[in-house]
């Protein structure tokens, strides 16, 4: 399903400085698998998620999803690839603060120009599923952290993606909300999504429905 082959990612900070975020990584994730990427800050977890989502391209090596080389996709195709396959829950949620919950959730569908009824149905269904429909007309900037996160998860699921990526999903949540997120995760896993989560929150470690925990250290995988 997802395959990283000898992937190296070097960020050019400026002309002289560069950061080697990932170094010759090999990783295979099967369909329906739930994988936790753990590791200290700066180890390269977010970089891996970003490469899988085609939000950035590897400096060398290849990223394959469903045997398609997404690391070689031109920009417009990587947008389409995300739209059709990826649900990304960002660390900072990346919602648009001055839009309502519903508007934010519908945002990925806007370029598709669907008919109003299916738009409505799709947003109702994800809002119910992630318990945010009672806030649908509230501006995102007026939401609590947990509500913002549920809105972000709802948005990540509106296109019914095969792959769900979540970056530090519980970083801004208290323990109760974190446990609630883990319950939502269990449901997503049950619906046979392929899920990759980057976190250093110990709450995720040793969960029964997690298939694999992978330690990332200094841009390499510790196997």
């Amino acid at each position: 399903m997802i395959e990283l082959i000898d992937v190296t990612k070097i960020y050019e900070v400026n002309k002289k400085e560069s950061v080697r975020a990932l170094s010759h990584i090999n990783l295979k994730i099967k369909e329906g698998e739930l994988v936790i990427l753990k590791g200290s800050s700066g180890s390269g977890k977010s970089t891996i998620l970003s490469l899988i989502a085609a939000l950035s391209k590897p400096t060398s090596g290849e990223v394959l999803v469903d045997t398609k080389k997404i690391s070689k996709l031109p920009d417009n195709f990587s947008s389409e690839y995300r739209r059709d396959n990826i649900g990304f829950v960002f660390q900072k949620y990346n919602l648009i603060p001055n839009l309502s919950v519903k508007e934010n959730i519908l945002l990925p569908l806007v370029p598709l120009n669907l008919d109003a009824q299916s738009m409505h149905q799709m947003s109702e269904s994800v809002m119910q599923r992630f318990h945010i429909e009672h806030k649908q007309d509230v501006l995102v900037r007026n939401l609590s952290g947990g509500e913002q996160q549920r809105a972000a998860i709802a948005r990540a699921n509106i296109n019914n993606p095969k792959i769900i990526l979540a970056d530090e999903p519980t970083a801004n949540l208290d323990e109760k909300l974190s446990l609630h997120f883990i319950e939502m995760l269990r449901e997503l896993k049950a619906s046979n999504k392929t899920i990759v989560i980057a976190t250093h929150d110990p709450l995720f470690f040793g969960l029964d429905f997690v298939d694999r925990e992978i330690q990332v250290h200094n841009g390499s995988l510790v196997l």
Binding site: N76, S79, E80, L107, V110
Partner: peptide, 16 residues
Amino acid sequence: KREIGILKAIGWRVDD
């Protein structure tokens, strides 16, 4: 800028 980045990240194409 951030807004454009978000739109791209959730699947908008450049021309969208």
